[in-house]
Design a binder for these strands. Structure first.
Lengths: 206, 206, 206, 206
DNA sequence: GATGAATGAGCCTTCATTCAT
DNA sequence: AATGAATGAAGGCTCATTCAT
């Protein structure tokens, strides 16, 4: 029997986080009972408290853990290309992938976080802010290099993220296990060229 | 004693809804205490239950009430013009106006609703769906008439709403009491023409 | 129906304190369940928390309330005479009376207080310290006036109180509803003249 | 492997008792955690249960062990002299010595015991009763032999023990590492001759 | 024997809801 | 209608005890 205790610990830790993710996504943080998390994780209630200080601590750990996956996924993808347009496309693509894999986490992240906040400045919120910052930076570059029109880069990042989330979220919610490729392109095209036909004066006249 | 009972009821009703809006926005639905709502509304705790069946009922009534304002606001504005582009612009504008006027309600709508769900299919969700449907319909028209490119109208509506919300929400949150005109235009331009410079092949190559 | 609400409040308050006194005396503070206190007081568990912030708060209020009875009882008795000896006798007598009337409170005071302490600096501990100070002061007077031998007045007060408590406590515990007069005299004589026969050299030789 | 099991057991046994003494004295029986006792004893939590049936069992064993030291200490000292007065003085002296050496145990004995009770009739209580009986017996002898005035010997024993404890306890608490000789004499004098000046009629008039 | 991870009964406290006035 | 005192279900957390290794 080789090194196990450390892994055993990790096992439980992971099992509880997974269980919490499921339960939080299902009923929301406040209605979630620690006991149910324990049951889903196949441990006793007290065991949960061996690995986490409190119910809130579980959520924070969950956020931290999941967030620490998304950001690197994006960073890794961005490194693959130097072209701004490709990077933008990659961001969209990674988000869809992440949504598909982390459906439940996303439900929590964009559905429950608002009402928890309080002392939650940590992992999740920061993760989201990092993401926004990262994209804002990318957009600034894009504006410098003439790829993007000059506007409020931060507002653009917020709108961009919102677009992606809206479309991806609904895609996941609708249980469309269909390939997201079309939607990825849809978002990219919308972001890049807007929704209007490129007839003369597309945006000028109302 | 003049006409009172009906008005009295309405008065209290309104007072409680306003109080609830404030409290829900401040601390979130689950952490909100009925007693505090009562205090803010200047009524006794028991009185709240003369007007509402339960805490959840207050939220539902609140959603219904506030939603019943946004939709007409939009409808009224849409009637002012027949031009699709103007209508789109109006939708954005009304949203910003609504955000400014209903800061607290918005906080609840986009911040707290997720974690309540359960039987909440009612007012708010329906209101949001109505809005989406209305906009989806508008976009379909736009596609028919050649103003908008042909794509998934519903996804477009979702992305459009998300864009507006993201920018408007952050505008309100940042306590920018500055005129929203620039941001309204920003959103309109982004939606209409996208973020990229209209150089050749804006969206084609990655 | 005359003024009642204020009295009603007091009623519950008193009922809960009395119940707590009984329960604390019976099983000790830590093993005492708030629910049982509530039952004994004939109120619901939640009601207890309308009148007291916490279980510990109940104990503190109890101590404060009961202590505010003993001290005045003693003070009042002391005022009746100017003679040191009479005052000393009165202190003993009042203690016995108090023990008889407040059997349960005493059980808590001298039996449970030690293990609670923590933040308990308040009423009870202070009450006891006040008592000790009061008696120490009296003894100092006694030494000045030549009634008492000159020694460490504080140690004398402590020993005096301990004597009284020991004898009174055992008297109450043994359920001796017999008149305490003999024991009061016993303590007085012991304190005043000691236990030995007044043969020459009572205390000198060992 | 030499003689170990028996000694090992004893070692752990002793270590746990010492740890428990420290922890019980510090935070009280109920707030004491078995885990902390284990930590202080440098054993694992489970090990504690190899040597003791329960937390309460630890306390009982502790009481038994410590009590089995005080009584012999006193007995041994009492054998050194036949004179009642010397015996009384010895009792006081041994108590002070014991207090100094067993500060923590005393804290438990007189501070925590009350709130445990239940089934605790055992070691400690018995030990205390034995002591009281022993002293009561001594006092009866003293009355027979005319050294002590005739009174309730048991009440006298109780008062005597209380006096000693009160003075010794406060001496220890005040961290007075000063020699206890003066206090020993103080208690002896108080017990023997009382607190009053031996003017005519010391105890008669009030 | 020794360990410490796991267990789950137990209890304080909160707060939505009820109801007597 | 209005009040607010009373209720009691519910749930987070602790910790003595057990047990697999």
């Amino acid at each position: 029997m080789p090194a196990s205790s450390a892994d055993e610990l990790s096992q439980k830790h992971i099992a509880i986080l997974n269980a919490a993710e499921k339960v939080f996504a299902e009923v929301g943080f406040h209605k979630a009972k620690v006991e149910e998390i324990a049951e889903v994780a196949n441990v006793a209630k007290g065991t949960v408290y061996l690995y986490f200080k409190s119910k809130k601590d579980i959520l924070q750990a969950l956020m931290k853990d999941r967030m620490s996956r998304l950001i690197p996924m994006i960073e890794k993808e961005l490194e693959k290309t130097a072209r701004i347009r490709s990077k933008i496309h990659s961001i969209i693509q990674v988000h869809f992938q992440f949504y598909q894999e982390q459906k439940e986490f996303i439900t929590i992240l964009y559905g429950q976080l608002g009402q928890i906040a309080e002392g939650m400045e940590g992992p999740a919120k920061q993760g989201l802010e990092n993401l926004e910052r990262m994209i804002t930076g990318l957009f600034k570059q894009g504006m410098e290099s003439g790829v993007l029109r000059r506007t409020d880069a931060r507002a653009l990042a917020q709108a961009f993220i919102a677009m992606i989330n809206a479309v991806a979220f609904n895609w996941v919610i609708d249980s469309n296990d269909s390939s997201p490729d079309k939607l990825i392109d849809f978002v990219y095209q919308l972001f890049a060229q807007g929704a209007m036909e490129k007839t003369a004066g597309a945006g000028e006249m109302l």
